[in-house]
Simulated scan of single mutants.
Amino acid sequence: MKTGMLAADAAYDAVIAGREGDVLTAYEEAYKTSWVYKELKIVRNAKPLLTKFGTMIGGAVGMFDLWVNHLTGGFSFFGTMKHHKTDAASTELASKHKPIAYPKPDGKLSFDKLSSVFISNTNHAEDQPAHLKLLDPSVPINVNLPKYGEPARLYCPAGVYEVLRNEDGSNPRFQINAQNCVHCKTCDIKDPSQNIVWTTPEGAGGPNYPNM
């Protein structure tokens, strides 16, 4: 939210001053002097360390790195580590993994996705164009389903993506419930075929979290 505010301020100032071409420069300068940049710099190696050393060792090394970063204002013995793959390219084939049988939500400590979406007060006008678009509508069923088990149905926290079938399991169909979208953009980033494009919906659409 803070970076969005910084971007809006930079754009407004540039328009008022008649220097629209300076928006990106002004925004980058504002970002690098903000508390957001300082906090993100401290945790920049957290995920790369987990990827490199695994959960146990990577977690321990990551905590030490965070401690050093915090005390020194951003110094790390590892420098700034890089991810060698995008999240989408890191998705492995379904054949390499066993399906996970998740227990049903108990309604006390765990809850189903749609109940959580309801609490977020997510809403989009029913007659607006869907803001989740497919570059190729055939990819989810013809490519992602056989190769990856169509991960969109699993990683989406709001149950936006579903693979529907007939009662006998035949005729798989990909359905997008854009009304449920909480705007996390996971699909835009994680889709292994990079076939899902998240676009900005109409104003006031999305989660509202009124009780936070």
Rank of each mutant, 00 (worst) to 15 (best):
K133H: 06
S34G: 08
A60C: 15
T122V: 07
T72M: 06
P146W: 07
V43L: 14
K98C: 01
V36R: 07
P99E: 01
Y31I: 00
H97D: 01
D127A: 00
I57D: 11
V163P: 02
H131C: 02
L50V: 05
P172G: 05
G159S: 08
P210E: 01
A125D: 10
T55I: 15
T186N: 12
H84S: 11
N171K: 15
L24S: 15
S34N: 05
P137R: 00
T55R: 08
E92A: 13
L132D: 00
K2R: 11
Y161C: 01
I16S: 06
G21P: 12
V197H: 13
K52C: 00
T33Y: 13
D127C: 02
D9W: 13
H70P: 03
D106G: 09
L145T: 12
G205Y: 01
K185A: 08
A152N: 12
G73D: 03
A101I: 09
G149F: 09
K41D: 04
D65Y: 09
A178R: 05
E162G: 00
V23A: 11
A178I: 01
S116T: 14
N177R: 12
A125S: 09
T91Q: 14
F78I: 07
D168Q: 08
A89D: 13
G74K: 09
Q175H: 13
S170M: 12
W198P: 10
N166T: 13
A8K: 12
V68E: 07
Q194D: 10
A204Q: 10
K96I: 00
V160R: 04
A10E: 08
I42N: 12
S120Y: 07
G149R: 02
V36G: 00
L134F: 02
T86H: 07
Y12W: 09
G203V: 08
K85F: 13
Y161V: 01
L135Y: 10
E39G: 09
P151K: 03
I57K: 15
Y155E: 00
N180A: 09
I196G: 02
E29W: 07
P210S: 04
E162N: 11
M56T: 15
P105N: 00
Y27P: 04
P137E: 02
S34Y: 06
L6R: 14
L135T: 04
D188L: 01
Y148D: 11
L164M: 13
F75P: 02
H83M: 11
V197S: 06
G21N: 14
T25M: 14
A26E: 12
L40K: 06
G203Y: 12
C156T: 03
A89G: 02
P201Y: 08
A7K: 14
V61K: 07
A26T: 11
L49A: 01
E20V: 14
C187W: 08
A8P: 06
L71C: 05
L66I: 14
P201E: 05
I189K: 10
A30I: 04
W35K: 14
Q179K: 10
S115D: 09
T3W: 12
T199M: 08
I42F: 10
T3Q: 12
G58C: 03
V23Y: 04
K190R: 11
Y209G: 03
N177E: 05
L132I: 03
N208S: 14
G73S: 06
L164H: 10
T72F: 10
M1W: 15
S110F: 13
G54K: 02
A88D: 04
Y155H: 01
A26W: 10
